[in-house]
Nucleic acid binder design. Structure first.
Lengths: 200, 200
DNA sequence: GTTAGCATGTAAGGAGTTACATGATTTT
DNA sequence: AAAATCATGTAACTCCTTACATGCTAAC
């Protein structure tokens, strides 16, 4: 039964919201979408798909037609080369669509945690502007809290800690600072767009 | 039973290798050591400690003495303020020490995977120079592979992909490139030290 | 005398991975 | 006809989290 909430579910709904797909292809697109943030194996994808079907958010199209002589359209691997064999194509139901919209509109704390921020961001193109802003700002505060904690612990523990531990901390700190600057730029851009993009 | 291998075990052994400690303090030091890479809860720490004891790598010192009027040495929270109450102090056995050395000398692929690299690096101060170099170089190749895959998928999928997906990919790519540069510096430093630190 | 922080634990479960098992189709 | 790659799946297991339960002690 396993809840299967979280990243994988969201990402699957989002990709199928673009267009129906079968599992194998879905996995590849998933790993492009989340670019190295996360790599999912089939062992988690297929059970997840089954459960999303069980919940009524997806339906399976078992295209059982081109089984014997289906060399008709090799179609050079482009975007619409989908009809090759009896594979299971999944697509969103209206309930699935609704669920995806609901996930998109979630601007609660979980949306800016490490595990989830990436997926939410990946679907910002389909996210309401106000929600986008809240998530970006939430993420920024989250990182700033982390910076504070970090600096506290540095001033408290200094002295000991060898070269490498210090180096790791320095690099970690800079990574977080860098992400904060990135978020600042994104937030600025969002504001600029709210005021109005180059009219006239 | 649960194997409890991996990061937590390694980090616990390493910290207790420095000095004996009880669980609560261990967790704090753990979260400083791994600085935001990872936060462990008590729900994983205590069971882990128990299992390390069961394997003979740790022993518990149940200091059952200062129970009633032990206000003797408040000792201003410094490094040696350890004797407050009947808490369980864990320390490494010779077998635990051996196990830690074994983990330190592991320069196999798992040492440079995302999950493990951080801990290995944190203990570089007690790691053999040759091992350090192999791990750093392994990590760098790992990241370079990732960059290649990434660039391939970019040239293959271009066109579609909205602003935000592209932005996420760009930021991700830059993060990885930045880590590669960091590794290059570290590797350079290691080489310089092998040749000989500022003698005279 | 009550909150806040120190300190230790357990049960249930979530979110995945690994390794395995299978078979169709395309490429060489 | 062999090898590669596409495609789908399952069982067992890992490693960790959440929520709960408990009690001590220091500070206000």
């Amino acid at each position: 039964m396993a809840k299967r909430s979280g990243v994988l579910e969201f990402a699957v709904l989002g990709l199928l919201h673009e267009s129906p797909m079968h599992g194998y292809e879905l996995r590849k697109r998933l790993n492009i979408l989340l670019g190295s943030l996360r790599v999912f194996s089939y062992g988690s994808l297929y059970p997840c798909l089954k459960e999303l079907v069980a919940r009524g958010w997806l339906v399976e199209d078992r295209a059982a037609e081109p089984q014997h002589g289906a060399k008709a359209a090799p179609a050079l691997g482009g975007s619409a080369a989908a009809s090759r064999r009896s594979k299971i194509v999944y697509r969103l139901t209206p309930e699935g669509e609704e669920r995806f919209q609901q996930l998109l509109s979630d601007a609660g704390p979980s949306a800016w945690e490490d595990e989830n921020f990436g997926v939410h961001f990946a679907f910002f193109g389909r996210t309401d502007a106000a929600i986008r802003l809240r998530i970006l700002e939430g993420r920024r505060s989250r990182l700033e809290e982390r910076l504070d904690l970090f600096r506290q612990s540095v001033t408290r523990t200094r002295e000991r800690l060898d070269r490498y531990t210090l180096e790791a901390q320095r690099h970690g700190l800079e990574s977080v600072e860098r992400e904060v600057r990135w978020l600042n730029e994104l937030i600025q851009t969002e504001h600029d767009q709210q005021v109005g993009p180059p009219a006239t």
